[in-house]
Simulated scan of single mutants.
Amino acid sequence: MEQSFDIPAQKPWSGIVKKGQTIRIEDTFGQQAIDTIFYCADDYSERYSSQDTLRAQGSAYITTGSKIMSCEGRVMLSVTADTSGRHDTSAGCCSCESNTVRFGHDTLYQHACRENFILELGRYGMTKRDIVANINFFMNVPISANGAMTVDDGISSPGDHVEMFAEMDVLCVISNCPQINNPCNGFDPTPIRVVIKG
């Protein structure tokens, strides 16, 4: 069985991935950041942990072979394929507040990932307090020798994808990033596709 979802530019999405299923997140047009948080479908208080995930693989990035870890130290998903090469989980998601600090107060009205997450989490009885450090699939965040991070031009091409095998039932919550002030989306947010199969 296969389900396919086309997610418009700048919009949120969520869905359940059952244990044993595979979720494929596709950067349809290239250079599009896809902010993602996973929650245990049976208990939303167990959710993605960037710290445990990075510690588990001893790497600053997520790619093929990475284990997506929960705050309870359990494996939520395993990355089985990745055509892009690496994905950030340190830079967090954009918000109206951070936009004003980085790009000026005239950007306050612009939609952001934090607002997308708030809208989508509300469907499951969660609030902004349930937003945790997320994965930024396809976002290029080089880290220099002194630990400084920058958001750089995206390195993903049209059709690049990452596939993950669910090790438990998970709720996947996505913000198809609406950021237009830095190069994470090539300054032009585009649609993406999610496929759940198995």
Rank of each mutant, 00 (worst) to 15 (best):
P158S: 01
G154C: 09
G104W: 00
L54G: 04
P183D: 00
R129C: 02
D169F: 07
V101K: 15
M1L: 11
I68K: 08
R102E: 11
D169A: 04
T190I: 14
V194G: 10
A148Y: 04
I25R: 00
K11G: 01
V17H: 10
Y109L: 13
A112M: 10
Q110S: 08
I192L: 10
N185L: 10
N116C: 07
L108C: 08
S84Q: 11
P142C: 09
I16N: 14
L119I: 04
M139S: 03
I196Y: 05
V75C: 15
R74C: 05
G186A: 12
I118C: 08
L77F: 14
R193E: 01
S70L: 11
D88I: 02
A133P: 13
R193T: 05
I23W: 05
T64G: 13
C177H: 01
S66H: 13
S156M: 09
I37A: 02
R74D: 06
R102L: 13
R74K: 14
G20M: 06
S45K: 12
V79G: 10
Q179D: 05
F137R: 03
M149L: 14
M164H: 11
V162I: 09
I68V: 15
L77A: 12
V194S: 12
P178A: 05
K18H: 08
V195G: 01
I135D: 03
A112I: 06
N182P: 05
M139A: 00
N176H: 04
T80V: 06
I174F: 11
I174M: 11
S144A: 12
L119G: 01
L108D: 06
F103Q: 00
V101P: 04
M1A: 12
T36A: 11
S90D: 10
Q51S: 04
F103M: 02
D52I: 03
Q31L: 10
P12L: 09
I143T: 09
T63V: 08
Y124G: 10
N99I: 00
A91S: 09
D82P: 03
P158L: 01
H87I: 07
V162Y: 00
P189D: 00
C94Q: 04
A56L: 13
S45W: 03
Q31C: 13
N176P: 05
P183G: 00
